[in-house]
Design a protein around this nucleic acid. Sequence first.
RNA 1: GCGGCCGUGGCGAAGUGGUUAACGCACCGGAUUGUGGCUCCGGCAUGCGUGGGUUCGAUCCCCACCGGUCGCCCCA
Length: 430
Amino acid sequence: MSSMKAPRGTVDILPEEAAKWQYVETKMKDICSRYHFREIRTPLFEHTEVFQRGVGDSTDIVQKEMYTFEDRGGRSLTLRPEGTASVVRSFVEHKMHGNPGQPVKLYYFAPMFRYERPQKGRMRQLNQFGVEVLGSSDPAVDAEVIDLAMSCYQELGLTSLKLVINSLGDHESRESHRKALVDHFTPYKHELCGDCQTRLEQNPLRILDCKTDKDHPAMETAPSILDHLNAYSEEYFAKVKNYLTLMGIDFEVDANLVRGLDYYNHTAFEIMSEADGFGAITTLAGGGRYNGLTEELGGPNTPGIGFGMGIERLLMALDAENIDIPTDNELDCFLVAVGEEANKASVKLMHDIRRNGIQIDRDYQGRKMKAQFKAADRNLAKFVLILGENEMDKQLINVKEMKTGNQEEVPLDQAVAYLQDKLSGGKSND
RNA sequence: GCGGCCGUGGCGAAGUGGUUAACGCACCGGAUUGUGGCUCCGGCAUGCGUGGGUUCGAUCCCCACCGGUCGCCCCA
């Protein structure tokens, strides 16, 4: 019984909900087209090593959240937990650095899998929309990617948004900062939480992100990455901020924003919802620059930047801000057939109507006319076509416009043309 | 992985240690031989997440497990 339910942390997206997904996807794709990004579809799973190297061994994702399995050939495979590693692997594999149009601007719409305890806004199968730009280290690209993400939310009507950005600097800056962090926190090592004691050695940057130790006095005086940026990194960050300002995009700099994945450097950003009642989880999207990741995955040194955006969280945010997604539930026509002859004729008639671009459905329960009309009403049919014995005798159909209640007799062989006229006329009059 | 709360028909929701498990919505049928609403009548859980235990007897008590939910960690 219970094994016949959707696995923990997964959900079925039923038709009513799926309509919203379609709307959102259409909007994203339209925006991507305007920013000249093209879609890429990579496999649902990869060799485990792609994520170990791409996402980073020290990350929570790799350490405890991956769906890893062995296939019949003994290969270790993993359901993708995030999008960037797969896209970069594909970029390297297909040598896209040699493609004519550089940089390569890609987007994807794909399910991700993470083995976690489910809660509001956190699923084991989640869906992300994301983009990646490979082949440019122009800060204008960083700004463009952030702008694209903000456009997605804003064009859907969201307003309670907060954009937070930071710079993690280049390798030299990070090393300098790392040393400073280790020097700073080592004296307090025994006062920090267990995770942070480990982080002190593996990735001291992430101590700044710790919620457990956030009130520790040493946190306040911790060296900021922003004080360790070298000239190049500082200028880079300044340009990104300047471009955002030029576009009128509000942001907040948070020196403690470090992001969970190992591959980030320079620009890191997060977009959060500030809507009431959004729950404990507020991050809608996160991303950043990952120069060096291509080399990690065996390709030539190619700069890159991208973000991932949770669709479930986006829909939650729309809900929290009471934004209704327009869904067209109306049905052009519903056919009411009574009698065996009419039943037979309706099969052919519906076929013709559909081939001519008009929607039509009918009753298949053998119900009486009244019940069929009820069904037509429930399905929000604009027109009901009535085909009974009387109509069959005269080779015509009765067409009733539900909104007005008007009913007309139409010769059977003119039904399609009549409906086309009525339906197009109705649209242009609205 | 840790903690709180929860688990009764398609949905919402009463309920009690002992054989009719309320009610509302939805759905189906009838009153209405071919027309959407309303009204009225009728139908709709051999079952109370699963498995054990306590008991003469459990949906109701206990335990475990599963699932949901909210929060922690972390993230989308």
